[in-house]
Design a protein around this nucleic acid. Structure first.
Lengths: 119, 119
DNA sequence: TCGTCACATCGACATCCATCTATGTCCGGA
DNA sequence: TCCGGACATAGATGGATGTCGATGTGACGA
């Protein structure tokens, strides 16, 4: 059987929705979308996302990401966890290092949801 | 002369930026974009935006919006103010009533910023 | 087996934010 | 001129969130 709504990442729960400008959003739909928006509503997370997305090979090691900020390693780890839980970043451990890769479809769904008219 | 950066609404400050996935976002660019994302990172504001956008004539009276939520009038007023300050909603007072209209270009800019690849 | 490196988790703390009640302002009607 | 309705503002408060230092975990090399 398919996963229940509560088991879905925010990204998976959003992929089905009509654009915001088409019809009034139900309270339930809004609650499903918001976690995804909140995930990118932070300057550090936005830059992390951008860094991973624009990185060579489409993936980035945590060690590279840490160096790009004047923040402690646990803080970066915390933000990466949020982005991963939202479904925007995929996580893969290889040896001692952890690589994050962007989920392009997720960003696309979100963009379509907002743009709506032009989609 | 053109307005200084600090006088711009978040929407105006964002319209020029390259998509998030194209190149690493600078700290300054991220700080400009985030207020716009935060403006829609709330279920009530997301629904308000959707209500106004999908309303007949493309505009909605505050009195209509109040009725759609189980929240106090000042709370709705507060959220509308944030959306207006972000540049996502235009405000017009006609007589006793206040009408809000959506800034479609703003949502489009934001969507393009996120989508990037498909823009 | 031990030490070290890469990353995650924990617990604490300060700040931010959504919401409320109370009050202010502006407009139109009586 | 006064009253009431529509909306905004002010101040207070509880909960969410970003950050930190300390610590845990798991993999690799000596």
């Amino acid at each position: 059987m398919s996963k229940s709504l509560l088991e879905l990442t925010p990204v998976e729960a959003v992929a089905c929705c009509a654009p915001v400008t088409r019809e009034p959003l139900s309270a339930e739909a809004a609650e499903r979308i918001v976690p995804l928006v909140k995930a990118i509503a932070d300057p550090v997370r936005l830059r992390l996302l951008s860094l991973v997305a624009s990185h060579a090979d489409g993936e980035a090691c945590v060690c590279d990401l840490n160096d790009a900020f004047d923040l402690s390693q646990p803080t970066i780890s915390h933000h990466l966890k949020l982005l991963h839980q939202a479904g925007l970043l995929d996580r893969e451990k290889r040896g001692v290092w952890v690589y994050y890769r962007i989920n392009t479809a997720a960003l696309g769904d979100l963009a379509g949801l907002l743009g709506g008219v032009t989609a």
